[in-house]
Design a protein around this nucleic acid. Structure first.
Lengths: 210, 210
DNA sequence: TTTCTGATGATTGTATACAATTATACACAA
DNA sequence: TTGTGTATAATTGTATACAATCATCAGAAA
């Protein structure tokens, strides 16, 4: 397992990113470093370093008045899906040629877990497995550019994906779409992987973007 | 003009980002915070905040041994162009419907400057005007998602664009391609803007990626 | 009442001291 | 020579004190 120690700054970043992207802090709210110091029990230094990263991801905006929560708007959501629709197929195609056997095995395992939780209607886990599947795919493309671009975009839509995975028929469909993507990658067929991914993102988009 | 005061952390970020992306620090070199303190004459605090942002952009990597310079590899370069080839046309199309008259006027002005410097064979200025034109376009799409995604990618290719703008025929061609893109946007024709941009990125890619 | 001005408080920006971890060099033994 | 252990130095991680800026509110003048 990965026993690498995680700095306080990293922990603060992940906590704040998750809280904001899940909507715990609404867009427009102001936070202050001092309030975060009290809430999180760490000094300003790691908090400020986390804030710089969130600022870089355009999730917050810092001014002299405080920390403005930006989050993800529905316009952002539409743009993210427009972009993923073009780029994720490229990633799938790349993964079809670049993925190692170990990565394929991880993807298979992730798909099995997703199948299990879809059967149990555990929507939180379904959402988590979905995230992991896509992240593994980004990694399997062996392209830092694709990974660095797509991972933040995928994280930003998590709040909106919640309703989607709670819909049983969509959860079933999504599972079979993942399965089709993985099959194409296992066959080392970039064109098929690309097409399957494109269909998957298009369906997800139709289901989520209003 | 924009008289907004820029923090030391911002200045350090821009300086380091520029130095690394222009190749002043080669990939694989280790820096230390202390050395940067002496070089830049500021304390570790703003330096560390800048480093967190560079880390987020995957330009450096920090370990206990020091700050590892990653920069942009030729594999990154190919992936960036593959991605820009799909996404920039969407941005151009969006700008064709979303750009304000003021933004169009800024784009026209930028194009005139580029024309001027192409005439004078001033490659540094040509490169700068080229960057500005694309950045204005990202902004004119009125999409933070497109802007935040494409601007870092465009910045990352600047080192490789240098040779390109020094080639006279390519500089001429690039200028006329920009002009065609802007014309389509002025006519509020998204499809034409998209096609013109696609051709432009494809040509740039052919010229730069080996 | 409205508007301006000044003081005060709140908030972020920066520097520095200290802690903790880890790489490195050196001595010493096998 | 090679390996090993230990001490030392180098480096990042964190906390905190202080500086600077800006928003806010009270109060006075028009």
């Amino acid at each position: 397992m990965n026993h690498k120690t995680v700095s306080l700054a990293d922990q603060v970043f992940e906590r704040l990113e998750s809280d904001i992207l899940l909507g715990k802090y609404p867009r427009g709210q102001y936070l202050t470093e001092l309030a975060l110091v009290e809430d999180l029990g760490v000094s300003r230094t790691p908090i400020r370093e986390a804030l710089r990263r969130l600022e870089q991801e355009h999730i917050i905006e810092v001014s002299t008045r405080g920390i403005l929560v930006l989050g993800v708007t529905s316009e952002d959501l539409a743009d993210i899906y427009a972009m993923r629709l073009e780029v994720e197929p490229m990633v799938a195609a790349r993964a079809a040629t670049a993925a190692t056997e170990e990565e394929l095995s991880e993807l298979r395992e992730m798909l099995e877990l997703q199948r299990y939780y879809v059967g149990r209607h555990d929507s939180d886990r379904i959402k988590y497995m979905d995230s992991c599947f896509h992240e593994l795919l980004y990694r399997a493309s062996h392209s830092t550019v694709f990974f660095d671009t797509l991972l933040p975009l995928h994280k930003k839509v998590q709040k909106y994906r919640k309703a989607s995975v709670e819909n049983e028929s969509r959860a079933d469909k999504s599972l079979s779409e993942h399965s089709e993507i993985l099959s194409a990658i296992e066959k080392r067929d970039p064109a098929a992987a690309s097409a399957a991914m494109r269909a998957h993102v298009q369906n997800a988009k139709n289901h989520i973007v209003k």
